[in-house]
């Protein structure tokens, strides 16, 4: 083959090689959230209640113990914690339900959640419930009507010390 043709061939090869690289380094664009969708993220850790409550030792029990052990006046039969159950309802329909076991070998750690839920944007009534004991009833509940803007991630946090659920990064609250 004569030289100029070879150079043209090489140019073509390089153009193709780096054309493919240039193209696939950015395109095609990937869309994973429609323009009318947004995300709710549940993200928190919470320690469930102990499965069996600790109790005070009775004076008789204390009396039976050797002196050096009498300082500890509570006894805890087990350090095992109850599962934490979380539920999320949107406009009366259940969005999510999860049972979170405690972490750790002794099942004595916190229960952690991280969950991403895509939802339609717009005005919604969200109800979050949580139960952290072995009984039936949900002992934490929060309901709020929120305006979810497309793409804006609403975060649901939970802090038992401040009363439970906190809806963060929502756009506006009504009611």
């Amino acid at each position: 083959m004569i030289k100029p043709l070879q150079y043209m061939g090489q140019g073509l090869f390089y153009a193709l090689f780096f054309g493919v690289i240039g193209y696939f380094s950015t395109w095609p664009t990937y869309t994973y959230l429609q323009p009318d969708e947004t995300l709710i993220k549940l993200s928190f850790g919470h320690a469930g209640q102990l499965k069996e409550a600790c109790r005070e030792r009775t004076p008789e029990e204390l009396a039976k113990l050797p002196m050096y052990q009498r300082k500890v006046t509570t006894i805890c039969p087990s350090r095992e914690r109850a599962d934490v159950v979380v539920e999320l309802e949107m406009d009366g329909k259940q969005l999510y339900h999860v049972v979170l076991p405690p972490t750790g070998f002794a099942h004595s750690g916190t229960s952690n959640i991280y969950r991403r839920i895509p939802v339609k944007a717009g005005v919604h009534t969200l109800k979050a419930r949580l139960k952290d004991h072995i009984g039936e009833e949900f002992n934490f509940m929060h309901e709020e009507t929120v305006h979810l803007v497309p793409g804006r991630i609403m975060v649901i946090d939970f802090k038992s010390a401040t009363g439970g659920f906190i809806f963060k990064n929502k756009n506006t609250t009504q009611g």
Binding site: I21, F24, S25, T26, W27, P28, T29, Y30, T31, Y32, L33, Q34, P35, E37, T38, L39, P150, G151, R152, I153, N169
Partner: peptide
């Protein structure tokens, strides 16, 4: 981190795992 991009230009040579995870 408060806003989900929703649509991104992906480098398919390195970042293909993320769309796959979708």
């Amino acid at each position: 981190l408060g806003i989900e991009p929703g649509s991104v230009g992906v480098d398919w040579f390195y970042l293909f795992v993320s769309p796959l995870l979708d």
